[in-house]
Design a protein around this nucleic acid. Structure first.
Lengths: 370, 370
DNA sequence: TGCACTTTGGCAACAGCGTTGCGAAAGTGG
DNA sequence: CCACTTTCGCAACGCTGTTGCCAAAGTGCA
């Protein structure tokens, strides 16, 4: 449930401005969800709980600001036909950057989440901080057409490894010690002269999926060179107190099991990846499923989405294997309906970059703490 | 932060009434936290982000309604001294009932959370639905003095086992099949003529701890005849989509381990309880710690609280054992500060009953979805 | 003792929010 | 062509928190 927060600090006293922006964001989010098809004022009123008149005022403001526009009218049901409103996607843009170990992907998206432009570069995290900052900055600048410059909200950057989302600082990136404690957000913001937000790749991917329409609460499990998770609870990304949530890979599911790179024994990651290494995909899926089942039971989420290169190499087998474990669990508990559904996450290889862009777009729609 | 919701259904359009109750709840919560010592208007303004004048209006309403009162004044700092306000605890009461396998505890608490009256009965869940409903009703009625009747908010009932918090229905209670699908909330509400709320014992305990001052996000792990958890995220209890969250005990931490009562293998519960049965408390604590570490990593919570009869039998050993596992984990990750703190939960044997009462009191203060 | 100063906190006027009442606009159906 | 239905905006309204102003109640210096 999205919280309403006042402009002031503290535990959330809400003034009229906060109320206005809350309701505006709600309406904008419904407009966005409706897509090109549009949505009528009365429908907006029903779905927000506001009166039609309030919606009229809000949408009038949005049209003045260029964020909304009329989009034809519905068939009449015996009276004046409803005029349909839609979001004007090109009223805002954001850049999303996916910094990975060996490459860099950048996308320019509009308010709708549509990718307007994209580019890839060979600059990986291994190139070092200065080179990556400079490479990223150039790639971002190259991506921006004149038309988008005025409506640019900022740049979102997603990368692996633990980091401080709030302060935009990296803790460390496994395998690249020189990044320890690097203040990526501030450095990049200074270089570009634009607002920058930094987050873990799994969180960005999860945010992208949430905005793209995966409702409720779900977990995005990313199995690539490592194993991590992005958690969405009630429509917004759960990051935890120190923005370190989602440490799914180093969940222990085999006490005193084989040693993991993290120093512990029997982590899901080491079990899963070693099974993949042996070519035993069913066992990898079973192990992943066990971890997912623990997560599902703990948080009572609605959906599990799988992604990452390793999953992409054998998607059906992973979905089936994880689904089998979750189904077994549901059967034991007697919950009807066959358990929590498992799917491959949409978005593919560009999903993280698009999600990173959503770090700046989503707040407009009341996601991501407004 | 608690969300603000309009009176209407739907995804949360907020009107002025919602705004008012939101801010009122915020002020009430600060008054409650301040306790008998009280808090001044200006302090309330600072901590809510509202203007002093708004706070004056809100507190004037609260004083009219009898919920707040003046409580002396501060020393002057060179001008007119601040008048201190406090909550009037006896302006509202709630009953909390803890239904357990072999006994029933009931408490009457005021707005402050102070226990005004308490009682125990021998009616356990095994006595069957009709007997328990009747026994509970009589015990609740016996607990109510004339003075509290007018200010009674309702009755909160906490009991073990999976249930539907929203609808107040039990799914099943392990060992007592006759409870399957029993609509406890509606039956008891009909019998008593009072609002009734039903929740899992672990959630009630966690809510009680959250209201009692445990800030931020924490997990309450209850180790008694079973093993469960109550999760508090950002100050409010996380129940999940089907209000089934907190299935901590059947988290698998030993793939293909010993068979658990739930039908799975290697659950924390079976490992932990069998270690306890062998008298091997250190091993039980280590296993519990492994489960807790998984939880901490996944959600990035601030604190782990332990409770339940088994923990009470050897509190220091459990705290030390769990703390050791969490400390080890923190050291591996290089996080300074020595990891997430572990403590024994306050509240003791009456904690669940008090928490159950908070199911009705907490909404006044903006906890529990307002 | 008296006066200037500081700080608190209530009263009154105000701007802005969603709501209500009402009427114009724009269709349908007989 | 006209009665009817439905949409939707204008105007007045009630309520919110905010701002301007002033009385109240202290402190501290002369």
């Amino acid at each position: 449930m999205a919280g309403i927060r006042g402009a002031a600090a503290g535990p959330g006293g809400a003034n009229l401005l906060a109320l206005r922006s809350h309701n505006t964001a709600l309406v904008l989010d419904l407009l966005r969800t409706a897509g090109a098809e549009g949505i009528s004022r009365l429908e907006l009123a029903e779905r927000t709980g506001l009166t039609p008149q309030a919606v009229s005022k809000i949408t009038a403001r949005l049209r003045e600001e260029g964020l909304a526009a009329a989009a034809g009218r519905r068939a009449s049901t015996g009276g004046k036909p409803r005029t349909v409103l839609r979001l004007v996607p090109e009223a805002g843009h954001a850049v999303g950057v996916h910094l990975d170990r060996d490459e860099l992907r950048a996308v320019l998206v509009d308010l709708d989440g549509t990718v307007v432009a994209e580019s890839r570069g060979a600059v990986g995290l291994g190139a070092g901080a200065d080179a990556v900052v400079e490479g990223t900055a150039r790639q971002v600048e190259a991506l921006l057409p004149e038309t988008a410059r005025g409506s640019l909200l900022g740049v979102g950057v997603a990368l692996p490894g633990p980091l401080d989302h709030t302060r935009g600082m990296l803790h460390r990136v496994t395998g690249f010690p020189e990044w320890d404690g690097f203040p990526l957000r501030d450095v990049l913001a200074g270089r570009l002269g634009l607002p920058v937000v930094v987050d873990k790749d799994t969180n960005a991917a999860a945010l992208g999926l949430a905005v793209a329409g995966e409702g409720g609460s779900f977990a995005y499990l990313h199995l690539g060179t490592g194993l991590g998770a992005g958690l969405v609870i009630g429509g917004s990304v759960h990051r935890g107190a120190r923005t370190g949530a989602g440490e799914f890979g180093h969940q222990v599911i085999q006490l005193d099991g084989p040693v993991c790179g993290c120093g512990n024994r029997g982590c899901v990651e080491v079990l899963c990846l070693s099974a993949v290494g042996r070519g035993d995909v069913p066992e990898a899926a079973r192990v992943l499923g066990a971890g997912a089942a623990n997560l599902v039971g703990l948080l009572d989420i609605d959906l599990v989405l799988l992604g990452g290169r390793t999953v992409a190499s054998a998607p059906e087998e992973f979905v089936a294997g994880v689904g089998a474990v979750l189904g077994e669990r549901a059967r034991r508990e007697g919950a009807g309906g066959g358990g929590v559904p498992v799917r491959v996450a949409s978005g593919g290889e560009w999903g993280v970059a698009v999600g990173a862009a959503q770090l700046l777009v989503a707040p407009l729609f009341g996601r991501e703490d407004g």
